[in-house]
């Protein structure tokens, strides 16, 4: 056989190495192999990002601009009509991409900063700090987070900052658990022990040995946590205790226009109006979930057999 010469040589052992490729090349190959669902998800996420970033340019009217006719029907001037006090629905939808998604994103980042940082510390320390943090998180997680959020909002009041802080802290408990559990699996690896034996400091071990190896699950978790935070904030806004008017926000828009749904049998378009912001929320979470699903499948090396 050609691949196995008779004389043994270490350099000629069979490996899983195909060819020299840059990271960019590898990423392109992975993308080319992605399923339609993941591609659809990526396109949707990209579209939301563009709409959110350029909202003032894209939106026909201002976020809080009030027109004389409330509940105006769908027509050329107001493509999706106006809401209960006469604001343009389309413009508010576009600004909503900036506000709702923006707040959810900031909250998720914050919760990763808190939960991820503490999780890493707990995983490396494994002594009393780990014990205290882990037990504390257990207790916090014993209360359903929506209920906990409601209690805290009733005390501190509903403002955007309070909302971000409260959800970020509650969600950080989940991030803490995940970071800790994946990091603990890496900390026991021999290459971490080798780095400790070499005399490396804690900073190096965290940044160079552990962090790169827990990134894939953390990235996937970021997507899932974002969906969860996004849905929680939308639910709170829908309940009227989240993002407050006049800020354009999809959750509150659903609530404000909900009554229109009763008119669906007379005017289907009017009936669809409350579903527009709801669909905007649903579409983004579906898209993120599709991408995360593919990413998890890809990085975990789970490859199903075709039948």
């Amino acid at each position: 056989m050609t691949q196995t010469p008779d004389t043994y040589s270490a350099a000629n052992e069979k490996t899983a190495f195909a060819a020299e490729r840059t990271r960019w090349d590898k990423a392109k190959i992975v993308l080319r192999k992605s399923p339609w669902s993941a591609r659809f998800g990526m396109v949707v996420i990209l579209a939301y990002m563009i709409v959110g970033l350029f909202a003032p340019i894209i939106a026909p009217y201002g976020e809080a601009e009030v027109f004389p006719v409330p509940f105006a029907p769908w027509d050329a001037t107001h493509i999706f009509g106006t809401d209960q006090i006469g604001r343009d629905i389309l413009s508010r939808l576009i600004y909503g991409a900036r506000n709702t998604v923006g707040i959810a994103l900031v909250t998720t980042f914050l919760s990763f900063l808190i939960g991820g940082g503490l999780g890493l510390v707990a995983a490396i320390n494994r002594s009393w700090i780990d014990q205290v943090l882990s037990r504390g998180v257990d207790v916090l997680m014993a209360i359903p987070s929506l209920i906990f959020a409601l209690v805290l909002l009733s005390i501190f009041g509903s403002s955007a900052v309070n909302l971000i802080m409260i959800i970020a802290v509650l969600d950080a408990t989940r991030v803490f658990r995940l970071t800790r559990s994946v990091a603990v699996n890496v900390v026991v690896m021999e290459y971490v022990e080798a780095a400790r034996l070499r005399g490396e400091g804690l900073g190096w071990i965290m940044r160079r040995e552990i962090l790169p190896n827990i990134m894939p699950p953390l990235v996937a978790e970021f997507g899932l946590r974002f969906c969860f935070v996004f849905l929680t904030i939308a639910a709170l806004s829908f309940l009227g205790v989240g993002i407050q008017p006049p800020t354009a926000d999809w959750g509150s828009m659903v609530r404000e226009n909900a009554s229109l749904i009763q008119f669906a049998q007379y005017d289907l378009k009017a009936g669809l109006t409350p579903l527009l912001p709801a669909s905007a929320i649903a579409l983004l979470t579906v898209a993120v979930n599709f991408v995360v699903d593919w990413f998890l499948h890809h990085t975990s090396g789970l490859k199903d057999t075709p039948k």
């Binding site: 969906c227 849905l231 939308a234 639910a235 829908f238 959750g251 659903v254 909900a258 749904i261 009763q262 008119f263 669906a264 049998q265 009936g271 669809l272 409350p274 579903l275 709801a278 669909s279 929320i281 649903a282 979470t285 579906v286 993120v288 979930n289 599709f290 699903d293």
Partner: peptide, 21 residues
């Protein structure tokens, strides 16, 4: 996978639209 991505109120209003309106 699609359904778990939906907010509860989205599912609720779609059902209201179809089954009550």
């Amino acid at each position: 996978l699609t359904t778990i991505s939906f907010p509860e109120f989205f599912v609720a209003y779609v059902l209201i639209l179809c089954l009550t309106s």
